Structure formats: structure tokens, C-alpha cells
Simulated assay, not measured.
Amino acid sequence: MPEGEGVPHLLDLETPAERDALAIRSGIDNQYWLYTRRNPHHAQTLIHNSVKSIWASNYNGAAPTKVIVHGWTGSGNSSMNPLITDAFLAVSDCNVIVVDWNSLASRCYTTAVLGVPDVGEYLGNFLIWLFDIAGGDWNELHLVGFSLGAHVVGNAGRTASGRPGRVTGLDPALPLWCKNPDRLGTDSAVYVEIIHTDGGVLGFMKPIGHVDFYPNGGTNPQPGCWCSTCSHFRAPELFASSVKNNHFVGHRCANLIAASIGYCQGETLQMGNDDMDKRRYGLYGLTTGASWPF
């Protein structure tokens, strides 16, 4: 399993969870870092139940809000966060909230998996409080999560009763999640979109969203990649590029087999981007390049 910056890490899925780490509510250590066009590179920390932290920040309740959540062993400083943050701010005057849950994500994988629902619940309750205190439009809330972070935003969306306008799952983590009832699903938001890039190994292959995209078959190797780690991390890169350029056009696939071999000739739909009005169902395939902007 890759670490926060894509370095492979040997993983034993039978390692006992560190119960001491779960004895307290895991999500209580979440940090929420705000970026806007007024502070695109220097975060302002928003603190749950601290009204002062909100009024002292550049948060704008009238603007769309984007939330980005890293995966296992990642942090708020992981490279995917500025990549996606910069893309959002380039196309929209919005609030971007980067969630740092490294306190739990840095633990062994089995421990992190068990703590994901609580991290997501804390995030969901934070957003409910933030919108109640400072304003916010649920229809303009876009939650983006990578790997384990995809399941975090899934739980956050359910905590908010499925009100977020959109959730994007970036190659949602597969190990220990296949039959896990706490995984990301269509009950997490009005519209749930999945981008599969390492299906069947580190990420899900089967469809779990309203719309599931399978770039280059949705599996390893992605163009320019030679291992599952690279293919897994391609998902946030493709998403960031899609937000900036909106150039990935998927064609609807008849079924999962067609998606996996790239034989998709149906109606078209843009993959990724920041469109909050997307509403569609089904599986979509497309091809990309091997390097930015892909």
C-alpha cells in the first residue's frame, strides 16, 4: 500500500488494530485548513466550535465550498492537496478546506480503517456547524477524497444526511472495504462520482457511485505508470487536471467488462471538473495521456 507521497509500504491486513488509538474519538484530532483566493498558499485554521476562528478567516458563506481529504499516511501537506486546491481556486472564487487527519492516518492501516467512520462523522458535524454559524450552500458543497479519504468523505456526507451536492471518490481504497458497510456509497451526496485508476488492487473496480469513470480501463498500469502505487496516485492528478482543463470526455459503457477493456461508445460525460450540476448514472470509459495534463 502506498504511503502519503506514493512510497510503497508492506501491508499486513491481519495486523491487530491499535485499540489505544481508537479508545478516544479518532476524529477529534481533525484539522481544517482554509485556502481562498485571498490566501491561496497560506492556510488559515478553522476550529470546530470556535466562532472566533471563523470570523478571523477569509471564509465566505456565500461562496462554494470544496473539501479535500487525503489517504493513509498522508497529511494536510501531502502533494495532492495543493495540486487540487490550486486547480479549484484557478477556476472558482471558493472556499477550499483541506482536512488533515494524519493523527490517525499515520497509524497502521488496520487501525486507520477502523477510525475512518469517526473521522468522517467529525468532518460532517464540523460542516453542519460551519454552515449554521457562517453560512454555506449544501448544493455548492463538493467533497473530494482519495483512497481511504474517499471513505472519510462518504461518512461525512452520510452524517450530513446526504445533503452535500457532490462527492468525488478518487480511487477509493479497496483493502478491508469490499464488504464494509462504512464505505463510500450513493447515500453520501446528491451526486457521487468515482474515478477508478487501480481497480482490483489498491482501489475498487466495481462501480460504487452514481457515475463511475474508468480511465484507461480503470486498472494498473495507467499510461506512464509501471506499478499499482503510481496508478493509484494517478486519480488525484487526473482530477486536478480535469478541474483546470475540463478536457476528459467519457463514453458510456454497456457494462463493467466493456469499461475494463475501453469498449465504450455511448453518450458522453465530462470526467471530474467542478460542475455542481452534474446528474447522470452509469459507467464511463475514456483514454488519457501519460503526463500532465494527461
Rank of each mutant, 00 (worst) to 15 (best):
S147F: 03
S147A: 15
L148H: 10
L148P: 02
L148C: 01
L148G: 02
L148R: 11
G149A: 11
A150N: 12
H151Q: 12
H151K: 08
H151C: 14
V152Q: 07
V152H: 07
V152Y: 04
V153I: 15
G154I: 08
N155F: 13
N155E: 08
N155Y: 06
A156P: 13
G157Y: 09
G157E: 10
T159E: 10
T159D: 06
A160K: 07
A160C: 14
A160S: 13
S161R: 15
S161V: 12
G162I: 09
R163V: 00
P164W: 01
P164L: 07
P164K: 03
G165H: 13
G165S: 11
R166P: 00
R166G: 05
V167N: 08
V167R: 04
V167P: 00
T168P: 00
T168Y: 07
G169S: 06
G169F: 10
L170W: 10
L170F: 07
L170H: 01
L170G: 11
L170I: 13
L170E: 03
P172M: 09
P172S: 05
A173G: 10
A173P: 05
A173M: 14
L174Q: 02
L174I: 00
L174K: 07
L174H: 03
P175R: 12
P175S: 08
L176I: 06
L176P: 01
W177P: 01
W177F: 15
C178W: 11
C178F: 03
K179T: 15
K179N: 14
N180D: 13
N180K: 13
P181I: 02
P181D: 10
P181V: 07
P181C: 12
D182W: 08
R183W: 02
L184P: 06
G185V: 04
G185S: 15
T186L: 09
T186H: 00
D187C: 05
D187G: 11
D187F: 07
D187Y: 07
D187K: 15
S188W: 04
S188G: 14
A189E: 05
A189P: 00
A189N: 07
A189K: 11
V190S: 10
V190W: 01
V190Q: 15
V190C: 02
Y191T: 06
E193R: 02
E193Q: 15
I194R: 00
I195D: 00
I195L: 06
H196R: 06
T197K: 05
G199F: 03
G200Q: 00
G200F: 03
G200D: 03
V201E: 00
V201R: 08
L202M: 13
G203A: 07
G203P: 04
G203S: 14
G203H: 06
G203E: 00
F204P: 04
F204Q: 08
M205W: 12
M205V: 12
M205K: 11
M205L: 15
M205D: 12
K206E: 14
K206L: 12
K206S: 08
P207N: 14
P207T: 09
